[in-house]
Design a protein around this nucleic acid. Structure first.
Lengths: 213, 213
DNA sequence: TTATAATTGGGAATGATTTCACAATCAGGA
DNA sequence: TCCTGATTGTGAAATCATTCCCAATTATAA
């Protein structure tokens, strides 16, 4: 899959992920074809938004008919580069780290967690969901063996930057950071932040000052 | 705290949460005053962006000096409506649900989880982090007692809409949805989606097609 | 008291994204 | 084969967000 256009808005990428989610649920319910209008409703966006988003990557629809759900899912996942296996490692075996390690959906969606790391000697050696927790110092060595490209940080905030440094040094290409801290990495490394509290803050603001009016 | 301006961009709200995160880390390191330029660097945004974002809510800085870190945190949290306790309930006591119930940070940040619900008879009655898991059917009754305003959905996707319906019926004002499905609710109810895979998809796309060039 | 250096707040200009509107295209039936 | 109704793909317009720039303001030091 190659892009038709050079620059693709970040918002478009985020929406594509939503489209996939909704399309998968539609497929599960037996829908084979859908047009942009009802799909837009289900995704809570504008119909031309969907068409424009898809147009960045090619022409996937049939005029007068709509989109074939299954083939559209394939087209979008291919456009996002998720039609393959991605190997990941996780640093920080706390509550959240454990939950993620036990989350089967990761493997199901092609994001295989192939290594778990922590610097706490009491955790090293422990086995979680078939993975042995390894000392963070051995990260580079281990990544050399398993070829992981994505790192997941689930440490406390004060250790996030150190974890990021380890990952960068090991040659990782992308980081998913759950720690509530910004990290700085070389520009060729991609970072995505997941922060529950950002969403809770947004809820708090919207409830308090009313976004729904 | 009241807003100066009527409409505030969603992106601004998200950035305010980032500013708080970074400012809290600065405070922990002993910084008392900071100007928009270095703060912008730490947050990875433009300096006038910060000033404009803050200007939606009032004038918090001192010309020629900058912003007092502590007081700016207070101003922003007040602007977001998070300078109070928010009571929340959680539906869906799976892996993720358990991890969230055990996550102390929630209480620390004023988002108190005061109820845990599930429809699985094997889970009902179980005690997690001081909370007894209750049948989802008793949601309305329980919320009547504890006055929760925010619901957290951690069910599988196919049960997300039902959970949302229960929450709406119980009079909840906002929903944080971790289930990989869109839900539909009346417009006065606010919904925020947290989806790991959206972030992983974005990473995949950026790594594959190069956002860092 | 006045001059200087720093830095905010906000208007104006720019840039990006979303929505509109419609020609182009397709399936299906007469 | 041709017409009708539906729906895409896309240029143009409208909206929204970001960045630039500088007057206004403040602390500090002479």
């Amino acid at each position: 899959m190659t892009q038709k256009s050079d620059h693709i808005p970040r918002a478009t990428i985020q929406r594509l992920a939503v489209y996939v989610q909704v399309l998968e649920n539609l497929l599960r319910e037996g829908t084979e074809v859908i047009s942009s209008e009802p799909l837009a409703k289900a995704c809570n966006v504008n119909a031309s938004q969907i068409r424009k988003d898809l147009a960045y990557f090619g022409e996937f629809g049939v005029r007068g008919v709509g989109y074939y759900v299954k083939s559209l899912i394939d087209s979008i996942t291919s456009a996002l580069g998720v039609d393959r296996e991605w190997r990941t490692v996780l640093i920080g075996v706390g509550n959240l780290g454990r939950a993620l390690l036990n989350h089967k959906e990761f493997r199901l969606r092609g994001f295989n967690i192939v290594g778990a790391f922590d610097c706490d000697p009491f955790k090293i050696g422990e086995e979680i969901s078939g993975l042995e927790v390894v000392c963070t110092k051995r990260l580079k060595e281990k990544i050399g063996e398993n070829g992981a490209e994505i790192g997941i940080i689930t440490t406390p905030p004060e250790r996030a930057q150190r974890a990021a440094n380890h990952l960068v040094e090991a040659g990782i290409k992308g980081i998913l950071n759950f720690a509530p801290a910004r990290i700085s990495v070389p520009s060729e490394v991609n970072v995505e932040y997941v922060d529950l509290f950002h969403h809770l803050y947004a809820l708090s603001f919207n409830i308090t000052f009313g976004s729904s009016e």
